[in-house]
């Protein structure tokens, strides 16, 4: 599974370079076709470029630090042990630590499932991992402001909790039914 992921990684890297070349070509052609708009295009690109370059290195360093200090084993150790509100809280916190993109989360989740973690906690962990990770919230703060960021964060926590509990109930019910039938 690891090798396969690595292969996919390299393939994706190549694909990105091809797309980038394509994008640069379109960019240059557009600037040639509509020279009167080129200063507006350049200004918009430049302003976003500056803002990203001020932020991204720091975000990457933060993710690197978390990667070396908080190992996958540590996450596995604390996650899935507890149920109830404590379990959900731990799932949220561990899911939002900056330890990698979503495809890293799935192998972790496989380990969790084997350990017997509840569906609710797995759903919360995956959702937190996907959309309220600490580095993401920082970038969101910079680009969309604290109002948008806090509102989305709070709403996400509320709805992900509901979704987690709902999915837990739904899938457990079906499991019980199939045992009764079987």
């Amino acid at each position: 599974m690891k090798n396969k992921m690595k292969e996919q990684h390299i393939k994706e890297g190549k694909k990105n370079i091809i797309w980038l070349t394509f994008a640069i070509l379109i960019f240059l052609i557009t600037l040639k076709i509509v020279p009167d708009k080129s200063s507006a295009v350049m200004a918009a690109s430049w302003s976003y470029f500056k803002e990203m370059m001020i932020l991204l290195p720091a975000i990457m360093v933060l993710m690197g630090l978390f990667m070396v200090w908080i190992s996958k084993d540590l996450v596995l150790k604390y996650l899935g042990k507890d149920s109830g509100i404590k379990g959900m809280l731990i799932s949220f916190v561990l899911g939002s630590l900056p330890t990698g993109p979503l495809y890293v989360a799935f192998p972790l989740v496989a380990g969790l499932k084997q350990k017997g973690a509840s569906i609710t906690n797995i759903v919360i962990f995956l959702s937190a991992w996907a959309c309220i990770k600490l580095p993401q919230e920082m970038v969101e703060l910079q680009f969309l402001g604290w109002k948008f960021m806090t509102a989305r964060l709070v709403l996400t926590i509320i709805f992900v909790t509901i979704m987690g509990i709902g999915m837990g109930k739904l899938l457990n019910m079906q499991a019980v039914e199939s045992i009764e039938r079987g």
């Binding site: 990105n16 379109i26 708009k37 360093v61 690197g64 200090w69």
Partner: peptide, 29 residues
């Protein structure tokens, strides 16, 4: 950690540039 950070930054760069080009075209045109 710094090595990991540098690596992921370089890996992300093409995507960053693409997004920046897209944003420029979107807002400029």
């Amino acid at each position: 950690a710094l090595k990991v950070a540098l690596k992921s930054f370089i890996k992300m760069l093409p995507m960053v540039l693409m997004i920046i080009i897209f944003i420029g075209l979107l807002l400029g045109l």
